[in-house]
């Protein structure tokens, strides 16, 4: 069997949606176990009011609830068993760490994230491909 455990990193962006669709397809073809990892990015740095932090936090919670719900729905439709994870942290490092924890033999992720900050220090996809011990599939 080519792949037994696939980790798909998702963030709700178009590229991530395409990557998750590919991961589903692969998992369905190979019978691999699929984990979808959503990384909760940082809160606004150097905030002036607690309100700003709280509101962003609430928006994030609502966003990820929707994202994980729709991810589960897609997996159900494809008949693939799915485990979902939502964790806070630095995207590239976290994806690599969770891949190790889950002993994933493939990481699937999109080429570009949502925001400018996903690109200014090099893309998450580039860094994951540098740091990961297993093969990485970057979906355009």
């Amino acid at each position: 069997m080519p792949f037994e455990k696939i980790l798909a990193a998702i963030d709700g962006s178009e590229a991530s949606d395409r990557a998750f669709a590919k991961a589903l397809e692969l998992a369905s073809l190979t019978g691999a176990k699929l984990t979808a990892l959503a990384v909760e990015g940082p809160l606004p740095a150097y905030a002036a009011t607690i309100g700003e932090v709280d509101e962003v936090r609430r928006e994030k919670d609502a966003f990820f609830e929707r994202l994980l719900g729709s991810t589960r729905q897609q997996a159900d439709l494809a008949g693939v068993e799915l485990e979902v994870e939502l964790r806070p942290g630095h995207a590239a490092e976290l994806i690599v760490r969770v891949a190790k924890e889950k002993q994933a033999d493939l990481i699937v992720l999109g080429r570009r994230g949502h925001f400018l900050r996903d690109h200014v220090l090099g893309s998450t996809a580039d860094r994951v491909s540098e740091l990961a011990d297993c093969p990485v599939m970057i979906v355009r």
């Binding site: 740095a45 150097y46 905030a47 002036a48 009011t49 400018l116 900050r117």
Partner: peptide, 11 residues
Amino acid sequence: ISVEVGISVAL
């Protein structure tokens, strides 16, 4: 800009 770079809007 604040949303794109993740720095508080006040700053």
